[in-house]
Deep mutational scan, measured.
Amino acid sequence: DEDSERELEKLRKNNASKEEIKEVLKRLGFSEDEAKKLAEKAG
């Protein structure tokens, strides 16, 4: 959803580590696997 998109955008701009991105995604309700895949894509 839009909030998670914004959250990811912010992380990308701040050069967050894949680990940080994954944690945020998991907080947003993604499964471990989904979060890992998305973090890879974002990283």
Rank of each mutant, 00 (worst) to 15 (best):
S31N: 07
E7G: 01
F30S: 00
R6K: 12
E23M: 03
S31P: 06
E7A: 11
R27M: 11
A39N: 02
N14R: 11
E32Q: 03
F30A: 03
D1M: 12
K10R: 14
E23G: 02
E5M: 14
R6A: 10
F30E: 01
R27E: 08
K10G: 08
R27L: 14
N14S: 09
L25Y: 05
D3G: 11
N15R: 05
R27T: 10
N15F: 08
K41Q: 14
S4H: 12
K41N: 11
D1L: 12
D33H: 05
E5A: 10
L28D: 02
E40C: 04
S31M: 05
N14W: 07
K18N: 08
S4P: 13
G43P: 10
L38K: 04
K13R: 10
D1R: 14
E34M: 07
S31Y: 03
F30G: 00
V24W: 14
G43M: 12
L8Y: 04
V24F: 15
I21L: 07
K37I: 12
R6W: 09
E7T: 13
A42K: 08
K26L: 15
K22L: 15
K41E: 11
D33S: 08
K36P: 02
N15I: 02
D1E: 10
K37T: 08
L8Q: 02
I21H: 00
K36W: 11
N15K: 09
L11I: 03
K36D: 15
E9R: 07
A16S: 05
S17V: 02
V24M: 11
N14G: 08
R27K: 13
K37N: 08
R27V: 08
E40T: 03
K36C: 13
L28C: 14
R6E: 07
D33R: 06
E23D: 09
A16L: 11
A16V: 06
A42G: 11
F30V: 03
L28I: 02
A39Y: 06
K18W: 15
V24K: 03
K37F: 11
L38Y: 10
E19I: 04
D3E: 13
L11A: 04
K26M: 15
K13M: 08
E19G: 04
E7N: 02
E34S: 03
E20S: 05
E32I: 03
G29R: 00
A16T: 05
K36H: 13
F30H: 03
E20N: 03
L38Q: 05
E34H: 05
E32H: 02
F30L: 07
S4G: 12
D33K: 08
R6S: 11
A35P: 01
L11H: 03
E5L: 14
E20L: 09
E2S: 13
E9G: 06
G29V: 00
R12Y: 14
K41C: 14
L8F: 04
E9Y: 02
K26A: 03
E9V: 06
R6G: 06
K13D: 09
D1T: 13
L11R: 00
G29Q: 01
K10I: 13
D1K: 14
E40V: 04
E32P: 03
E34P: 00
A39F: 06
K41D: 11
I21K: 00
G29Y: 00
L8V: 06
L38C: 14
E9H: 06
K13S: 09
V24C: 14
L11P: 03
A35S: 04
A16E: 01
A35I: 12
E19M: 04
N14E: 10
I21P: 00
E40Y: 05
E7W: 14
A42P: 08
D33P: 05
K13W: 09
K37Y: 12
D1W: 14
G43A: 11
E40F: 05
E2D: 11
E34Y: 05
R27W: 09
A42Y: 15
R27S: 13
K36M: 13
L28N: 02
A35W: 06
A35R: 00
E5V: 11
G43Q: 10
I21V: 06
S4D: 08
L25T: 00
K10P: 05
L38H: 05
R27N: 12
D3V: 11
K37A: 13
K26I: 15
K13V: 07
A42N: 13
N15M: 09
A16Y: 08
L28P: 03
A35M: 05
L11S: 02
L25N: 00
K26F: 02
K22Q: 12
K22S: 08
R6C: 13
G43D: 12
A16R: 01
D3R: 10
K41G: 12
E20M: 11
E20C: 07
A42F: 15
L25V: 00
A39V: 10
K22F: 15
L25D: 01
E2H: 10
E20G: 01
E32G: 02
S31L: 04
K22E: 15
A39S: 09
K41T: 12
D33L: 08
K41P: 08
N14Q: 12
D3K: 11
E20F: 08
E7V: 15
K36I: 13
E23R: 06
D3W: 11
N15A: 07
S17Q: 05
E20T: 07
E20Q: 11
K22A: 14
G29N: 02
S17W: 04
N15E: 07
E5W: 15
A16Q: 03
N14K: 08
N14V: 07
K10L: 11
E2R: 12
E40N: 07
D3Y: 13
E5G: 07
N14D: 07
E2G: 10
D33V: 07
D3F: 13
E19Y: 03
S17I: 03
L8G: 01
D3S: 09
E40I: 04
E32V: 02
G43K: 10
E40M: 06
K37D: 09
E40Q: 06
N14F: 05
K10N: 12
K13E: 08
E2P: 12
R12V: 14
L28S: 01
N15W: 05
E2I: 13
R12H: 10
K13F: 10
L38W: 12
E5S: 11
K10A: 10
G29F: 00
